[in-house]
């Protein structure tokens, strides 16, 4: 339970840092997109480590996190480039 708490605090820190950096980079679309990509990659890493620690890291879980990140990146690309 304590491990879960630490994991989720870490996740919220990653996401909070990503949002703050994105906001700081407003006016610079390239920097904002790069921030989004880095945050998405960090999320995938978090997911893999989280499930590895829980000992339930399977191939379908890896693919799921990668696809969730891919969706967020393409969605962000569409919004930023429009």
């Amino acid at each position: 339970m304590k491990m879960q708490l630490v994991h989720f605090i870490t996740l919220f820190l990653i996401l909070g840092f990503g949002i703050a950096t994105f906001f700081y980079a407003r006016g610079n679309a390239t920097a904002q997109f790069a921030t989004g990509v880095v945050t998405a990659v960090a999320y995938v890493c978090w997911g893999l480590l989280h499930h590895a620690a829980k000992k339930d890291l399977h191939a379908n879980v890896v693919v799921e996190y990668v696809l969730i990140a891919a969706i967020s990146i393409i969605v962000l690309f569409i919004v930023i480039r429009s």
Partner: peptide, 28 residues
């Protein structure tokens, strides 16, 4: 079941929504 963590996905997509909400068209 074997799948990703829903709460994590929800937190992630909420962050994406927040980010998209701050996107302004244009560069300086």
């Amino acid at each position: 079941r074997s799948s990703g963590h829903n709460i994590a996905h929800i937190a992630f997509f909420i962050a994406v929504l927040v980010i998209i909400g701050t996107v302004q068209r244009g560069s300086l």
